[in-house]
Amino acid sequence: MLDEDLIAAANVWRAAHPSGLLMHSAMCCRVAAGWIVANDRSLAEAAGTIVPWWLRHWKHWGPSPWPLHWCEAVRLGTWDCGVFAAAGDHLMRARGLDSRRVLAIEEATPTETQQWRHLWEAAGREPTWTHGAAAYHEVCGLVSDGVLSIWDPTEAVWIRPGESLPQAPVLALKVFAANDQELMVNWQGVNLPCGVWVRTGATGGVMGPLGS
């Protein structure tokens, strides 16, 4: 992807904020949000894993309606990456882990974006998360001993500097700070400024903040 195209995509999603699931004031959402934590406690801890790997086995990736409440989310047949990331963050926080929200821009081919358009339109939704050859994605961050690891709950894989997701190269990332004092995170040896889109250099080019 040309650098200007990536910058254009980053501008489109400049104000993007991590997806969040809403709570009804009624019992339904308390049951759902509590259930997913208890289920995680049963499954993920037994497997000795840090992350809730089972989400990917439970839900297929696909269109989700927004806004979305917890009681609706647990009953949906498909989750988009925003639901996966919101649920992953919820579960990691429930485990007492130092979780971060992370946004990503992936490279996409025209055939992929066409397919995604069909998939979303069939569900009556607009795939606003693609822009040219770029696709918006949400993942999870986990800070341990001062080092950020990025985990994609949609694919149940880790994203490392210089590597791609199974589907596509990750071109840019945006890490949301835990607090106002957190300006930078160390992503396995690579310093990422918080709150701005940063080019990963996965397909060449220099790693660093994307200009607007």
Binding site: M27, R30, G34, V37, A38, R41, S42, E45, A46
Partner: peptide, 20 residues
């Protein structure tokens, strides 16, 4: 060890049912 884990998980469900 697996059974001890299940015991711990059962407490999590008890706790959630108590809350709900």
């Amino acid at each position: 060890p697996g059974w001890f884990h299940l015991f711990s998980a059962s407490l999590a469900w008890c706790s959630l049912l108590t809350e709900l």
